[in-house]
């Protein structure tokens, strides 16, 4: 199977799962924004995406995408470190054309994963997981608004979330165009266009997330 055996195949898996996760983040961000405007509206979204079969199927697909992305990242990084050889350069300078994020995708990814673990514990565990298992009877799984207000109402937590969003921003500014490049959808004209689109899209995405954290942490 070329997706597993060849270097480009493995990277195609990284690209497709990465782009899929960006799409997921886009939906997630749009739904979060509802919380600023209307508590009932946000809770309606929470109820709609509770523990229905389609929400569960969707969650499974997203989880599979994230797990594949992480596993392939670790696998590729292992091969890359081996390919670099045992001896490291004594003096090495990053050329000014090279983005910092592009050489630190794994580190950024690890920060993102830690954030995901925290986020799943604070929200998913008390909402979807709670609805299926009834593990926390005192928490209403459909009152997402109250959960946000309680969790992000703590300014320290809001700042932690903002740091997380910053890591996602760095990860995606490189990841977005890099995925397109790996899929071969690039040329001399589109190279700079894709980089620009990456930056703009990622900035809008992360600002959308950040606005909610700032609103609940410092304004509401």
């Amino acid at each position: 199977m070329w997706l597993l055996n060849s270097s480009i195949g493995k990277k195609v898996v990284m690209s497709l799962t990465g782009l899929f996760l960006i799409l997921f983040l886009t939906f997630h961000m749009s739904m979060n924004l509802v919380a600023i405007f209307s508590a009932e509206g946000y809770n309606a979204v929470c109820e709609f995406l509770g523990a229905n079969w389609y929400a569960l199927a969707g969650t499974a697909v997203i989880a599979a995408g994230a797990v594949l992305h992480i596993l392939f990242a670790l696998w590729l990084t292992y091969i890359n470190r081996r390919a670099r050889g045992k001896d490291r350069y004594k003096v090495s300078e990053r050329p000014k054309e090279v983005e910092w994020a592009s050489q630190n995708m794994l580190v950024l990814g690890i920060i993102v994963v830690i954030g995901i673990a925290l986020h799943l514990y604070q929200f998913w565990f008390k909402m979807q997981f709670n609805e299926i298992t009834g593990i926390l009877p005192e928490v209403n799984p459909h009152d997402g608004y109250a959960l946000i207000a309680e969790t992000l109402g703590n300014p320290i937590m809001a700042v932690i979330y903002l740091v997380w969003f910053a890591a996602i921003w760095f990860h995606l500014t490189h990841g977005f165009w890099s995925a397109i490049q790996t899929l071969g959808w690039n040329n001399k004209i589109w190279l700079s266009r894709w980089k620009c689109i990456s930056n703009i899209y990622t900035t809008i995405l992360c600002l959308g997330f950040a606005v909610v954290a700032i609103y609940f942490g410092f304004i509401a």
């Binding site: 090279v98 592009s102 490189h174 890099s178 490049q181 899929l183 071969g184 959808w185 690039n186």
Partner: peptide, 29 residues
């Protein structure tokens, strides 16, 4: 035993002949 490209662009920046990484996109394609 060569590694996998992560599109950092360091190769293009250091290439004495200025070979563009858009060639890599073509190879991928």
């Amino acid at each position: 035993g060569f590694g996998n490209c992560t599109n950092t662009g360091a190769c293009e920046a250091e290439c004495p002949k200025n070979i563009s990484i858009t060639n890599i996109a073509r190879l991928n394609r």
